[in-house]
Design a protein around this nucleic acid. Structure first.
Lengths: 346, 346
DNA sequence: TGTTAGCACTCTGTATGTGTGAGTGCTAAC
DNA sequence: GTTAGCACTCACACATACAGAGTGCTAACA
């Protein structure tokens, strides 16, 4: 519905505004870009674009600023074409990312932490990374490791090779052999269950088949529910709140406070990240955001998976005047990179 | 060296300035406080106080502002008298703190997290909490839990009842009994050692007494060094960066950026917190801080211990114009409260 | 000798006015 | 359909004026 010339002019305005954060005027466009058009003509086109809802005027005699609708068009026309190309990422950028990861990966947490840092550094915006915990893991077996006369450590091994443990009370005088017998029996009865299934009732049932000690049962229940809770917990990693302050739209302290308040509430951040559906890359612009407090921001979000299962979500949050091109390029690259790493964490 | 009247006037100026963040003038003092003195007299005293280094003038015709030296005097005379009293904490405050902790303690991390949150909420400043890991724990025994034909989980139990684990490769076809034999032998040889002592060489020595498989040895080394690293790692919890923006001294975005930059660098925060000696409550005012970037801030810091050993450090960081009285009261209270909780984490 | 009233002086913050520059919309000519 | 010209608008920068709060100094007072 937009002819080529309008489209071209709109793109110039968007990119100019993204770069300078200043309203763009017709003269500026004519001067900077060799369109073969006079400012007056451009003015007419801009007037049309404003009527169509793509441009806004802060006040009568300022240049014009892209509307959310304009960004939407801009992003949509870009995302598809960028699916397979590295986009604007330079070799240098990619090398930087690679080495960054290489240096500091010791465990999963490090991966997420590094991702948050890289994202914010490369995009000059706030980054949010949500790590899901594998709540679908299945119980494999458990083992008691004696600690003292009345205490032992319960180790639970799941089928994904992970391990959790908790402290439990045992009847005084119980021998190591007895503990092994107990754990063997219980393991048999629980094998294959999801951790989340193993609630108090099931545990009671299984336990009463092998022992009667109430104290031990109670501590078992507590330890396992703790482990289950820990396993279904999501963890949030943030990066680059500082970068925000470099953006002209956040020179206003009130706005910074607002956003910082949101970022500090872990629960809110989780809600925001969980709200994104899980279909590849998603860009939410301005008031498209459902959460009050970030309605004047844009967010680019991607979900990464391992064997079809969602492992986490990463997002970049910043002003609507965001370098979408760069952000999307970085996200695409990280997305691929992460799914490779996660598949084989060496 | 200061007579009572000077001392009194200085205190009034400090507290007034802490409350209003505005330079305090002689008239204001005379009006607000019934000292029985005219502004002129107060002016004379203030002039003296300035000469003595306790007051500063932003410019000729402004009121006066306390110097770092003044805060020093103020804090010193306060800390001692507050050791045993609840200070300015209301019953309400204390009840709030208690319930806050009660609600969300599941593990150690939660304790630290809550502490950071409470500190920042109650003091309206940034809070930093450093959690030490027990690096002095001694090895008790280890155990291998088979996972697959070629992999097992190594569990290490230490004398403080904690447990760590890591994934290791085992020779294909090794039986469970063989693994038990191996772990029993190694446990005997390593018992009583500090985790940090168990380096590659020692491990090689111990291991070669029981087996020859190189692959397993390599993965053992790696797993144990990972565990040792994790155990000596310190963890940082922050809270209330948002609160800073409520302080008039942080209306300047540049200053916020500066501080935020520091807080985002985990390493720097660790350095700052580790620098504090371990003697109870410590207040560092302005340029007393050795770290560039917080030289215009004050910090109140306390170290908490369990059985004589340092478990962590908590601190409140804010402008030199800080509500020392309140901050110190909160810290004192939390300090006592935490040491109780830590002793018996129920 | 310590305290105070009076006064001139200084400096900041706010309000007000003016000029400049960038931008627009409209009209008329090409 | 495009463009030159022109009047108009508005934000911003700058200067000037002014009120308010505070100071230091001096001289008078108890």
């Amino acid at each position: 519905m937009l002819n080529d010339r309008k489209r071209k002019i709109l793109q110039i305005i968007i990119e100019d505004y993204i770069e300078t954060a200043e309203p763009v005027g017709s003269r500026t466009i004519a001067r900077k870009h060799n369109l073969g058009l006079s400012p007056a003509t451009i003015r007419n086109e801009m007037s049309d674009l404003e009527l169509l809802g793509y441009l806004e005027q802060p006040h009568t005699s300022a240049g014009r600023v892209p509307s959310a609708q304009a960004y939407r068009l801009y992003v949509d026309s870009m995302v598809d074409s960028m699916k397979e190309e590295p986009g604007v990422l330079t070799e240098n950028d990619m090398a930087l990312i690679n080495s960054w990861y290489k240096e500091r990966i010791r465990n999963m947490d490090d991966i997420f932490k590094s991702t948050a840092k890289i994202l914010s550094r490369m995009t000059q915006n706030v980054s949010l990374v949500l790590a899901n915990k594998k709540s679908t893991a299945r119980f494999k077996y458990l083992k008691f490791l004696p600690l003292s006369d009345t205490r032992a450590i319960m180790c639970i091994v799941t089928d994904d090779g992970a391990m959790d443990n908790g402290l439990i009370d045992i009847p005084a005088g119980m021998s190591s052999a007895e503990l092994d017998y107990l754990s063997g029996k219980m393991s048999n009865l629980l094998e294959g269950r999801r951790l989340t299934e193993i609630n108090g009732d099931l545990l009671q049932e299984v336990y009463s088949a092998v022992s009667e000690d109430e104290v031990m049962l109670a501590s078992l229940k507590k330890a396992i529910s703790n482990i289950a809770a820990k396993n279904s917990e999501q963890k949030v990693f943030l990066g680059g709140a500082k970068q925000l302050l470099n953006q002209p739209e956040f020179q206003d302290v009130g706005r910074v406070k607002n956003l910082l308040g949101i970022l500090e509430e872990e629960k809110v951040v989780k809600d925001i990240l969980n709200a994104g559906d899980d279909s590849g890359l998603k860009v939410t612009i301005g008031s498209e955001n459902k959460f009050t407090g970030i309605k004047d921001c844009s967010m680019v979000q991607a979900t990464y998976r391992l064997n079809g299962q969602i492992v986490g979500t990463m997002a970049v949050l910043g002003p609507t005047r965001m370098e979408y091109r760069k952000v999307i390029a970085v996200m695409n690259y990280l997305h691929k990179y992460l799914e490779t790493i996660l598949k084989d964490p060496k």
